[in-house]
Design a protein around this nucleic acid. Structure first.
Lengths: 198, 198
DNA sequence: TTGAAAATTGAACAATGTTCATTTTTAATT
DNA sequence: AATTAAAAATGAACATTGTTCAATTTTCAA
């Protein structure tokens, strides 16, 4: 019966994370509570703590998967060829669409903050960079004169601007803005920002 | 002794809100706890509940004052005359500066969410519109051809983009971006978005 | 078969939001 | 001035949640 222990450990960890993900997706960040997770996974509270030091670590793990999903969606969105500008618009829309279709996952990613003045986890930062690279590719094609340093800065600016639009939209800070009008504004934003520098 | 009761009531309410504001400012949203607030204000927990139905209401009251402060800062920033584009840049910078100088107040405003899928409070939405109007004035001067509907939409796009930059910057999602480089990117953003439409 | 290591449990504790019966203070009436 | 009702204030008590840890059950190797 060698290997049963490890199999059990892996299985438990998997189920706990699975329960946490589906809770985040269906009920949102506030529902990610140890007892709820443990019950959903079919274990006791103590077992959850054997796999994650605290709830924050579990939330971070869920959010890592969300970042993966976002990246996957964006990569799939630009699978087909097109002009760099069109691809940038598609990237922006796919980011918006993820937020609209998975509001709880999306909100959980940005609503969660580590206690104290701790910055976002290193793991997330790496995944952020991978998202920025997707944008960077297209901006580079449109602006061949940009140095690598400037390219990275510009990618972040562009992503941040799109993120701001999505945030305001999700928070209801844009009242009475039709969804296609929102997409038009996204297009406007991308067009203006990606414009070749004079 | 007529009027003593009302004076006491007003005084208590004032002290409770005052304590909440200074806690938000000094310790952040997480420190806004009933017992902490009550202790700081010099009352019991029950008294706090006589003035606010729950913590959420108190947080909203604090955030309303924060929105007022932000508006005040922005209004002061464009007191002196200048070109509409310069004034837009100054507005964006003053928004960033508020966030940098009062990180706890700024974060508290956007980190707080009502339970359930409730949207932001009506009170905040009105104050948001007042901020957007500040931007709208300048965008209108730069784009006289824009109708009032489009002007409002464009103001929101511009504000959302700036907000996204500030958000990413505050969350540390922009690593190693010098503060003056950040301001340069804000300028870039504003220039591109405020550009007269063809 | 047996004993140590690993996995799992769930009771217990601390912190926090909320309620409410009780006490204290104020205002009006007699 | 005494009395009484209303308002203000209190803080004990309860529910919920994160976290810990001693006790129990399961696995594995000797």
């Amino acid at each position: 019966m060698a290997g049963v222990q490890e199999a059990k450990r892996l299985e438990t960890g998997r189920r706990v994370l699975e329960a946490a993900v589906s809770l985040m997706q269906e009920e949102g960040l506030k529902a990610l509570q140890i007892r709820t997770i443990a019950a959903k996974a079919g274990y006791s509270v103590g077992s959850v703590y054997k796999h994650y030091p605290d709830v924050d670590a579990l939330i971070i793990a869920v959010n890592s998967l969300t970042l993966d999903q976002i990246r996957q969606r964006m990569v799939e969105a630009i699978r087909e060829p097109g002009s760099p500008l069109d691809r940038l618009k598609i990237l922006a829309r796919s980011y918006l669409h993820f937020a609209v279709e998975q509001p709880n996952l999306w909100r959980g990613l940005f609503d969660h903050h580590l206690p104290g003045n701790t910055s976002i986890p290193e793991e997330h930062r790496t995944q952020n960079v991978k998202l920025l690279d997707l944008i960077g590719q297209e901006i580079a094609a449109l602006n061949p004169q940009l140095g690598s340093e400037m390219l990275s800065v510009r990618s972040r600016t562009c992503f941040a601007a799109v993120h701001g639009m999505v945030t305001f939209s999700m928070e209801g800070r844009f009242i009475g803005l039709k969804s296609d009008q929102l997409e038009q504004e996204l297009d406007f934003l991308v067009e203006r920002l990606a414009l070749e520098a004079r």
